[in-house]
């Protein structure tokens, strides 16, 4: 009995340690965002601000064209997700349920695309976009991501688990292939779609490298770049302002996660109706 208790305590301590390691940076970010400039520089560091400086948030949002950055971030991220869904669902359905010439080769290409880092392709893509005169638009930040290889892969696996009979029943019900895909397969894959949407949202909302390369003016820059520029706007780093900006940047991700978390758990334990 005693031994059992010891293990329970060890188990608890380990979990607490892991939780702390993950949550501490967030807590520090929030704490810093509410501190004064002096507090951010004090040694030892302040953990709890003496009086919360809500003004930091106002300052972060007024120090540049914040509304434009936010608007760009929203347009870019949502466009990417919508276009990805339009491309990904038919592709995954075809890979999962159709037999056609070159299917395996094409799927191998998708997997290769999945493994290709963006750092390999950014120069040719930049040159191409510049050639087409698109650098002053949002298109270079959207177009290269219209196909999501990871999404096609995940969704294909999910579609493959759906019994063939359901599709056959729909064919006997005189449903078109298009209807089968949108009215039967897509709703059944909701958990997988939510997972893909969340991953895609997080990676594009937080993306720093790609917009840094693909933009040369504030009109087309997203929030990540805007917040990074808070750092450069004056000689010294205003950590309290930067962190306030970061808090604003992170909030949408938390909201999306809370909305999707139930579906994401489902995506990994799917069993279907037997």
């Amino acid at each position: 009995m005693k031994k059992h208790n010891v293990w329970l305590s060890v188990d608890f301590l380990l979990k607490a340690a892991i939780l702390f390691a993950f949550i501490f940076p967030f807590l520090w970010m929030i704490s810093t965002s509410l501190q004064t400039f002096q507090e951010t520089l004090s040694v030892p560091p302040t953990l709890i601000p003496s009086s919360p400086q809500w003004i930091n948030f106002v300052e972060a949002m007024t120090s540049g064209p914040f509304a434009t950055y936010a608007k760009n971030s929203i347009i870019i991220t949502l466009s990417i997700i919508i276009i990805q869904f339009l491309v990904m669902i038919p592709a995954a359905y075809a890979f999962a349920k159709y037999e056609f010439f070159g299917k395996n080769v094409l799927f191998a290409l998708v997997l290769i695309a999945f493994m290709m880092p963006g750092q390999v392709t950014f120069i040719p893509i930049y040159l191409m976009m510049a050639d087409w005169g698109l650098i002053k638009t949002l298109i270079p930040q959207i177009l290269p991501f219209m196909s999501n290889a990871f999404g096609i892969f995940l969704l294909r696996q999910y579609f493959m688990q759906i019994p063939e009979e359901i599709i056959e029943a729909a064919r006997l019900d005189n449903a078109s292939e298009f209807k089968i895909m949108w009215k039967i397969m897509t709703p059944m894959a909701k958990p997988a779609l939510a997972t893909i949407a969340l991953f895609s949202f997080v990676s594009h909302w937080n993306d720093y490298f790609w917009p840094l390369v693909m933009t040369d003016s504030n009109e087309v820059r997203p929030l990540t770049l805007g917040i990074a520029m808070l750092k450069q706007s004056e000689g010294i780093s205003n950590w309290h302002i930067i962190m306030a900006g970061n808090v604003v940047l992170v909030i949408p991700i938390l909201i999306v996660y809370l909305l999707c978390s139930k579906q994401i758990v489902k995506a990994f334990v799917y069993s279907g109706i037997k």
Partner: peptide, 16 residues
């Protein structure tokens, strides 16, 4: 299949 005037009941029911 949908135009043959047939209906089918599957072993696993295949309900949507």
């Amino acid at each position: 299949p949908g135009k043959r005037g047939v209906a089918m009941v599957f072993q696993n029911y295949a309900i949507y």
